[in-house]
């Protein structure tokens, strides 16, 4: 694993993208690592494209600026790919994780990903609808990102999601989200 991992999240307001970045930061604190999680603040509107970022490092993080060369790009809403170039600045060995029903090979083509870059898909919205009852793809996306990056174990992530959601939500919503995380982890596919 490189010394510092930088992640860029692309989502739309209301999909829980910022929460996903926060939970990931919490989960990565283990083992004495340094973490950052921050959104790009603009007018906060449901449905508007937004970006959020993570940095994870074994060393103290002193950079206080957006991630411009992500090693991991997590696309929580694939319709954003039509509106902007989500591959911009991505490293040559970047990993893309896309919420899509499509075959990963088709998404690879749509992204025009380099041969050295990896592309994964997961049908996070369908998982969310069946497990949580609402199209909130952040939990399955978290599971998928953790699976392809190996940043933390699945059990550790699940523990963190329980802690984070436990403060705000009823048990039924929490258990649905935990299931969604697990399915995202298991159902992500490479193309």
């Amino acid at each position: 694993m490189p010394e510092m991992i930088e992640i860029r999240w692309h989502g739309r307001g209301g999909q829980g993208t910022v929460t996903a970045a926060k939970v990931l930061a919490d989960a990565c604190l283990s083992g004495g690592r340094y973490v950052q999680a921050f959104p790009e603040y603009g007018p906060e509107r449901a449905g508007a494209p937004l970006r959020a970022y993570n940095r994870v490092s074994d060393h103290e993080l002193r950079l206080y600026c957006p991630v411009v060369n992500p090693g991991i790009v997590s696309i929580v809403d694939a319709t954003i790919m039509d509106a902007m170039d989500v591959t911009e600045g991505a490293l040559d060995d970047a990993i893309f994780v896309v919420n899509s029903t499509k075959d990963p090979a088709d998404i690879r083509k749509a992204l025009k990903a380099k041969n050295t870059q990896k592309v994964f898909t997961v049908d996070a919205t369908s998982i969310a609808i069946s497990e949580i009852g609402r199209p909130l793809p952040n939990s399955p996306m978290l599971g998928a990102v953790v699976k392809v990056t190996d940043l933390v174990t699945l059990s550790h992530l699940i523990e963190e999601v329980r802690k984070s959601f436990g403060k705000k939500f009823a048990e039924k919503i929490i258990s649905g989200n935990l299931k969604a995380v697990e399915r995202g982890y298991k159902e992500v596919r490479e193309g």
Binding site: K22, F38, Y41
Partner: peptide, 12 residues
């Protein structure tokens, strides 16, 4: 402290 850059960003 810096608005948003530190105030609204999560760090260890």
């Amino acid at each position: 402290m810096d608005g948003f850059i530190v105030s609204h960003s999560i760090a260890r």
